[in-house]
Design a protein around this nucleic acid. Structure first.
Lengths: 238, 238
DNA sequence: TGAACTCACTGAACTAGTCCAGAGGATGGG
DNA sequence: CCCATCCTCTGGACTAGTTCAGTGAGTTCA
C-alpha cells in the first residue's frame, strides 16, 4: 500500500481529531475542495475517505451543505413502546418532532399485507420527522387502521402516539413485532432527512397489537445510520 | 437530472433483471469494465451505480473477484439463543460453520469492560465464520470467561456453542442483552468476510447471562449487511 | 501426481479535471 | 420591513484515463 500513504493519513487525522474532540459533534468539516488541497490529493480520494468515515458513523453529510461530525448514537429499544421524547431526554439529549403530512387513504397492497387487511380498508398515514439536538435523524411513517382510531386526525399529532392510543382509545400494546433492515433511503425519505437518495439508512418496520391481539397499526422508521444503536435487554420483557 | 439519464437506467436495468430473476442469486455480474462499455459510461459511474445497488442490498462484491446477486435475507432473532444451523435450516437454507482461530488470553480492557471483569482475567476467544448456501455472511467472535468453561478448548467448536453450554456445563441462558450497530468492518473481519476493509457491516454485540444471572460470555457478530434482517416478536419472550 | 509458477483478469485506488443544482447569505427595490 | 433576486459556495455527478494487488485457471516441471 504505497500510494495509499496519503489517504489513510487523512482518515486517521480526522478520526483522531474527532476522538480527541478537536472537532466537536455537529461541527462542520472543511469543504471537500479545501480538504483536497490540505492533503494534496483529488476530490475523489477525499470523497472516498469521507465516505469511509461516514460508514464508521463518525461523520455525516447534508446535501450540498457539507460534512459534519456525528454526535454520539442514542440507544433505542423498539420493543418498549416508549415515548420518543422521553427516551431521548433520559439520555440527556433534546428531542423534537415535526408533523409533515397526514392523509387518509385506501391501504395499498403492500401496507395491507403488513397490516393483514383486506384491500379497500381505510388507513391513516401520518408522516413525521424526529430531531435530536436539532439534527434530523428519523423519518417515521405511521399507518393506523382507521376504524380503530375515530377522529384521531383532529388531535395534536406531534405528541407521542402511544400516549394518545392509551389516553383516547384505551389501547395498550400487548405485542410488538419488528424487523431491522439495513436499506437505502427512498427518495421522499432522503429528501426529508436531508441526505442524498439511495444513501444508507436503518429501516425498522414495526407492527403493533392491542390487548385483544388485533393489529392496530404499523410503523416504518428510517434512521440516519450513524445516529442510532438498537439496544435490547431480554430481562425487560417478562 | 439530465446527465444522470444513462446511469439510473443502468441501475434500473440491473434492478429489473434481478427482480425479474433474469439474474439469479449468487450469479456473477459482468465486470465493471464490461458494464462501462455496455452502458457507454466510465468505470467510476459504473462503480457508483453498483455501490448504490449494494446499499439497497441487491448485489454484493467480493474483493477482486467481482459483483454478485444477493440471495434473499435470512431472518435472525438475536434474543432467541438458538442454534445457527437449525435457524438457517428452518428457512430452507444451508448453513456451515468454520473454526478460524481459538486463543486463550488475558482480557484486554475493552472486552473486560463488556464482560464486567477485573483486568487480568483469562478468557477464551473463539473466532468462527458462518456460511449460508456456500457464501460467507458472518464473522463471529465469542469471548468466554475461562473459569466457567473448563476444558472447552478440547471440544468440537464447529457445533453450536449454546448446545455445548447446556450439555457440558448445564448453562441455560436466562438473559441476553444486545446492541445492533451499523458499522465499518475492521480489517481482520473484512478479510475473513471477503469484503474490503471499511465496508459497511451490521455489528451485533451480545452479552449472555447464566441462570444465576452471571455474565458468562459475550459475542461480537459482523454480518454482511445484505444477508440478514433482524426480526423480533415480543410475544416470544414471556 | 502434485506442487510451484505464470499470467490474464478482476476490483481497488488513484490523478486531473468539468459541469450541474441546491443552499443560503448578501443585496437592493418597493 | 419584507420580499425577490443574484451570486457564491457546497456536494453531486460526470469524463478519461493510470497503476496496483489479489484471484484463480492453466501450465510447467520435478
Amino acid at each position: 500500500m504505497k500510494r495509499n500513504a496519503d489517504n489513510p493519513k487523512m482518515k486517521d487525522v480526522l478520526r483522531e481529531q474527532i476522538f480527541g474532540r478537536a472537532l466537536l459533534p455537529l461541527q462542520k468539516l472543511p469543504s471537500e475542495r479545501e480538504l483536497s488541497e490540505l492533503f494534496s490529493t483529488t476530490r475523489i480520494s477525499v470523497k472516498d475517505a469521507l465516505s469511509a468515515l461516514e460508514t464508521e458513523g463518525l461523520i455525516y453529510r447534508e446535501d450540498r451543505r457539507g460534512w459534519f461530525v456525528s454526535p454520539p448514537r442514542v440507544h433505542y429499544n423498539p420493543l418498549s413502546r416508549c415515548h420518543f421524547n422521553q427516551m431521548i431526554n433520559e439520555q440527556n439529549r433534546i428531542a423534537e418532532t415535526k408533523l409533515i403530512n397526514v392523509s387518509t387513504i385506501m391501504a395499498p397492497s403492500d401496507y395491507a399485507k403488513v397490516l393483514e387487511l383486506k384491500e379497500l380498508t381505510e388507513i391513516h398515514v401520518i408522516e413525521r420527522l424526529r430531531y435530536i439536538d436539532g439534527r434530523v435523524v428519523l423519518f417515521v411513517e405511521n399507518c393506523l387502521i382507521s376504524h380503530f382510531f375515530p377522529a384521531i386526525i383532529a388531535e395534536n399529532l406531534t405528541q407521542s402516539l402511544t400516549q394518545l392510543y392509551q389516553d383516547k382509545y384505551q389501547f395498550t400494546t400487548s405485542r410488538s413485532r419488528f424487523d431491522v433492515i439495513p436499506a437505502a433511503a427512498p427518495a421522499h425519505v432522503a429528501k426529508a432527512l436531508n441526505i442524498s437518495a439511495g444513501q444508507q439508512v436503518l429501516k425498522i418496520c414495526r407492527v403493533n397489537y392491542n390487548q385483544q391481539g388485533q393489529i392496530i397499526d404499523c410503523e416504518f422508521e428510517y434512521w440516519r445510520p450513524d445516529a442510532v444503536m438498537i439496544s435490547i435487554d431480554s430481562i425487560e420483557h417478562n
